[in-house]
Amino acid sequence: MVTYPITMTVNGTDRTDAVEGRLLLVDYLRNVLGLTGTHVGCNTSQCGACTVLLNDQAVKSCTVFAVQASGGIVLTIEGMATDGKLHPLQQGFWEEHGLQCGFCTPGMILSSYDLLKHNPDPSEVEIRHALEGNLCRCTGYQNIVKAVQYAARNGVLSVPAEESAQTVGAQEENGVAG
């Protein structure tokens, strides 16, 4: 079995491994690093349950090979809370009943985070447009939209501590968006 060395920063922690070329980023996160908050839903790039941030952009980690993420910065749902305190987006999903079974929630939160970073005060239409790639089979989306609005309303969107220091440098080094 041919393996390739990879290094990446996941939720602020540097990781180094040797992986097969065909190992998907989502399987690396879940099965190698044990970060099972990133979910596998449709496996066909449609449902968005596997959404993580890679180099400051929301991506479907079931459609990226782990080797492609080497050298990059990854943020998963496990990196959102800081010092045991929920991120405003997580708080929003809690307060507004933005989840039922919870399966889509990590992906919803990461996609919403990507939206709010670029558009801190989105309209309802903009929120719905931004979440087009995330499917929820429980809520009917109403409360998910409210949860994002809650986060936008409740002060400046805070950047998870692990990510803030390193994102800028990583983007400059990488230079290529995919």
């Binding site: 952009q57 929301a58 991506v59 479907k60 931004a130 087009e132 790639g133 995330n134 968006a177 995919g178």
Partner: peptide
């Protein structure tokens, strides 16, 4: 095209 995540990667 697609959705935001697809547009972030697709070329």
């Amino acid at each position: 095209i697609g959705d935001p995540m697809v547009r972030n990667r697709g070329t």
